[in-house]
Structure formats: structure tokens, C-alpha cells
């Protein structure tokens, strides 16, 4: 007698990721899928992202919208995580006056922190409100000592970033990069592994054997603000745009 144990989706995505990394970078097309039916609105992804990228006050890469609809007794609560959509048509890249932000060949929109002049034009250009600016604040700045957890480096874009006055990323625009530093090390983005409802999927949509490809093609997926035709790379299952 044999019992077939269903593979955990995180292990499946991890294996998909490893397979994608064997391909040349230009053949990978990273995308994220959020199944809103499984999101419980715990905000664990937001906090995990904050910790992973050592984000200061006022900088957040992923927020979870909480929307109520209906009238008592038929009421519903909807949770919609929003982040950088890594659009194919990028208003933020067009707005940057010094080419500090660009669309990579693998689909990720990145920021060159050492090139960004901090004009914040991209913040106003993004229709998703996905970008925030690092104004150099610390959570513990008004206490006797800035705590060490705020001074540890972030590893964004595979470099060590210490937040010190005058040094990037202070003064820069900041946003989600699909945890590029983790992906390149063979790890899934932090929000994906932290999601307690396993509502967030990540992978290479060019890989037809990947879980994300399978789910996107077997469900009615939607994107945010479709009317803008920016071709986002973050897809949703169960999205009710009329509520947003």
C-alpha cells in the first residue's frame, strides 16, 4: 500500500526557484501571485519584509489593505497585500531623471542606490503608491541609544547597506525588489516564506512546469489598476477591484 503525500507548496516553489536559477538571467521572468482567498490579513509579510530589509520608519515595501464591504448582517472583510508591481510599462523608470531605476531583464524593477539623487519623482509617478523614501529616521532615535537592530546592514541588491547619514540608502527612494538578494541565493522572498496562509506564490512564469505558471493558467487572475495597462507582474486571485 502506498500513500502519495502532497508536496508542500513552499518546497515546490523552492525547487522551481532552483531550477530557474540554472537558466541564464534573461530567460527568467519573475512574478508573484497572491491568492486573496487564503490571505487572513495577519500582516506577517509586512513585518517580515521590514525585518529582512531593515526598513526604517516611513519605509514599507508591502502593505495589506483591509477593506470592509456589504451591510450588516451581510458584511465581508477583504485583505489585499499591495507592493511594487514590477510593471512591464514602468512610469517610475520613465520619471527618474538620472536612470537610477531600471527594469532588469528578469522583470524586476530595481534602484541603483548609489546613483539615485533622491528627487522622489518616482514616488509620485507610481500609481500603486509602492515607493517610499528613506528620510534618515530611526525608530529609536529619540532614546538614549539607537538600538543595534536598526544599525545592522541590509543586503538589498546583493550589497551590504549600512544606514548612516549621507550614505545610501538614506536619502533614496526604496521599494520592493522581490528580495532579489534572497532569490539570487536560492531562497524565496521573505514575504512568501512568512505567509501563514501560504497565500503568496513566487516563481518564474516562463517555466511551464513551475507552480506559479500552473496556478496563473488555471485560475482567473487579475492585476491591480488594469485600466492603466502597465502590465504588472503581481497577479491576484479573488481580487475585487471595485472595492479598492
Amino acid at each position: 500500500m502506498s500513500t502519495k503525500i502532497k508536496e508542500d507548496i513552499l518546497i515546490r516553489m523552492q525547487n522551481d526557484l532552483k531550477r530557474a536559477l540554472t537558466k541564464p538571467v534573461e530567460k527568467r521572468k519573475w512574478a508573484m501571485l497572491i491568492d486573496l482567498r487564503k490571505c487572513v490579513g495577519c500582516h506577517a509579510c509586512t513585518i517580515a519584509c521590514k525585518a529582512e530589509n531593515v526598513l526604517p520608519p516611513g519605509v514599507v515595501y508591502r502593505r495589506v489593505l483591509e477593506i470592509e464591504s456589504g451591510k450588516y448582517p451581510d458584511v465581508e472583510r477583504h485583505f489585499v497585500p499591495v507592493l511594487c508591481n514590477h510593471c512591464d510599462k514602468t512610469p517610475c523608470v520613465d520619471a527618474c531623471p538620472v536612470k537610477a531605476t531600471k527594469k532588469r531583464v528578469d522583470g524586476i524593477v530595481d534602484i541603483d542606490y548609489n546613483h539615485c539623487i533622491g528627487c522622489r519623482a518616482c514616488l509620485n509617478a507610481c500609481p500603486y503608491g509602492a515607493r517610499t523614501s528613506d528620510f534618515g529616521k530611526f525608530y529609536t532615535q529619540d532614546t538614549p541609544k539607537i538600538q543595534p537592530y536598526e544599525l545592522r546592514p541590509a543586503f538589498e541588491y546583493q550589497k551590504k547597506w549600512y544606514r548612516k547619514k549621507g550614505n545610501s540608502p538614506i536619502g533614496n527612494a526604496r521599494k520592493c525588489h522581490f528580495c532579489l538578494h534572497r532569490i539570487e541565493s536560492g531562497l524565496l522572498p521573505e514575504c512568501v516564506v512568512t505567509c501563514i496562509g501560504k497565500a503568496t506564490y513566487f516563481g518564474d512564469i516562463e517555466d511551464k512546469s513551475s507552480l506559479i505558471f500552473e496556478i496563473i493558467n488555471s485560475n482567473n487572475v487579475k492585476v491591480l489598476k488594469e485600466k492603466l495597462k502597465l502590465k504588472p507582474r503581481v497577479y491576484y486571485i479573488g481580487l475585487k477591484e471595485e472595492l479598492l
Binding site: 500582516h43 509586512t46 526604517p56 520608519p57 516611513g58 519605509v59 514599507v60 502593505r63 495589506v64 489593505l65 483591509e66 477593506i67 489585499v80 499591495v82 500609481p127 500603486y128 503608491g129 517610499t132 528620510f135 529616521k137 491591480l224 472595492l243 479598492l244
Partner: peptide, 16 residues
């Protein structure tokens, strides 16, 4: 102007 309904309260802290 908020990009989405409820965006302001989605994550609240100084600077947002």
C-alpha cells in the same frame, strides 16, 4: 489622494 481605499491605514507609522 490615496492610491487605494484604506491605503492610509494599511500600515501606520511615522513617515507614512
Amino acid at each position: 489622494k490615496q492610491p487605494f481605499k484604506g491605503f492610509e491605514n494599511a500600515f501606520f507609522e511615522p513617515g507614512l
